[in-house]
Design a protein around this nucleic acid. Structure first.
Ligand SMILES: [Mn+2]
Ligand SMILES: [Mn+2]
Ligand SMILES: [Mn+2]
Ligand SMILES: [Mn+2]
Lengths: 219, 219
DNA sequence: AATTATTTTTAGGTAAATCTAAAAATAATT
DNA sequence: AATTATTTTTAGATTTACCTAAAAATAATT
């Protein structure tokens, strides 16, 4: 069976919204997809007919195994293309999301596999998110939010929680990127800012907002 | 202004059908796009309103300068992606057309320019067709059909007239590819077959059909 | 428990791109 | 020039993905 770009976008959105527990509501989906609740209801009926999800009126929605498989295939393409754009074409990681939103709908299976091989089977995309392999498996994220890292525990920046240009600008200014090693020296409860130290640099303070936008992997 | 995938496919089809002289007819377009004449008429009105072409009832159609510009941008993307697929991802040139039909509609301008640079600004795609540069200019094709090459004139294979797997299979068997140098030793008028010679190999005969599917550049 | 607020669905409609069948225009033949 | 054939356009439907407004179901408050 084949799916329209719109259908694929719905499946991916549901995948991202559905946590381990709980169903996804019509309004959540409408907000995520910048559309109206009535349109979502229409599409859910259609996707249910295609057996991609389970849905009952007023009860919200969950992906079926088929639906999850499709979602993982789309996420795989999205993240592989993002990796390609940053690693091979020298895009900044704040510029790739929109382009990958289009590229993720290119249908050729062979293309995905060849692209993966060309890139050297990367495990994480430029934002630190795991790339599903051809069977839909992805590396478990051991990363934690920087705000939750214990004091004096050395860790490596492994991901970002936002893909905005503004965040990238700030990170560049502070010379922080994916792979940077740092540790927390102090946490200030007044404004939840934290003092961090990078290698042989002097410690400096970063805001709560910035700390929450960074994910790290203890080393 | 932005254009739908369908609109882009119409513009590209008109571009390929319109020779220096003459307008493109509704039926020609319908055949090329595997659709019906009535659908073509509808779309031509729409594209005329968008000033991409000149069209008068029953008189056929021609691209405006705007239309040509758009067509060249699409052809550029199509051929750059084909080059990428063959050169970087190791596709065979008989496998890339369908994939490029999708990739040519990815809208990011920056992507095209970065891809072009990454590929080293190639001038010709894997089928020997010229790739328009960012201004829409393309290298002039000095190639001639192999059937028209004079006897004993050394030439280099520069393009193919078909992208079928069947042709590729035959060319592989005869060890002929883009770049192969050869000359014609004899032409047989009975069946229009020709005898060709490659470097230090013994001469052998190829059919009229094969000769017509090959383009060469005298060296 | 009754009322009020929120969420979700239904009903009915629009725009894009397609189709078939019939009408109109143009081209080719007698 | 008249007839016939072909091409092209119009008329009217269909499908997909939207929308707004109203109705129905569920959740939250009094
Ligand atoms: Mn992204
Ligand atoms: Mn990402
Ligand atoms: Mn092609
Ligand atoms: Mn080509």
């Amino acid at each position: 069976m084949s799916f329209s770009i719109t259908e694929e976008n719905y499946i991916k959105a549901i995948f991202h919204l559905q946590q381990a527990e709980g169903n996804v509501s019509t309004n959540e989906l409408a907000a995520e997809l910048h559309t109206k609740a009535a349109s979502v209801t229409d599409m859910l009926k259609k996707l249910k007919a295609k057996k991609l999800l389970s849905y009952e009126k007023y009860k919200g929605v969950r992906l079926s195994n088929e639906g999850k498989k499709l979602a993982l295939a789309i996420v795989r393409k999205h993240r592989l293309w993002e990796y390609f754009l940053v690693d091979k074409l020298q895009f900044g990681w704040d510029e790739v999301h929109e382009v990958a939103e289009e590229l993720e709908h290119i249908s050729s299976k062979k293309l995905v596999e060849k692209l993966d091989a060309f890139l050297g089977y990367p495990k994480f995309d430029p934002h630190g998110d795991p790339i599903p392999d051809s069977h839909g498996k992805m590396a478990v994220q051991v990363q934690v939010n920087l705000i939750d890292l214990p004091v004096n525990r050395l860790a490596e920046v492994s991901g970002v929680g936002s893909q905005s240009t503004e965040l990238l600008e700030l990170l560049k200014h502070k010379h922080i990127g994916i792979g940077t090693r740092l540790e927390i020296k102090r946490k200030f409860s007044f404004d939840h800012s934290i003092e961090i130290k990078i290698r042989n640099q002097n410690p400096f303070t970063i805001s709560q907002q910035l700390a929450q936008a960074l994910f790290v992997k203890p080393v």
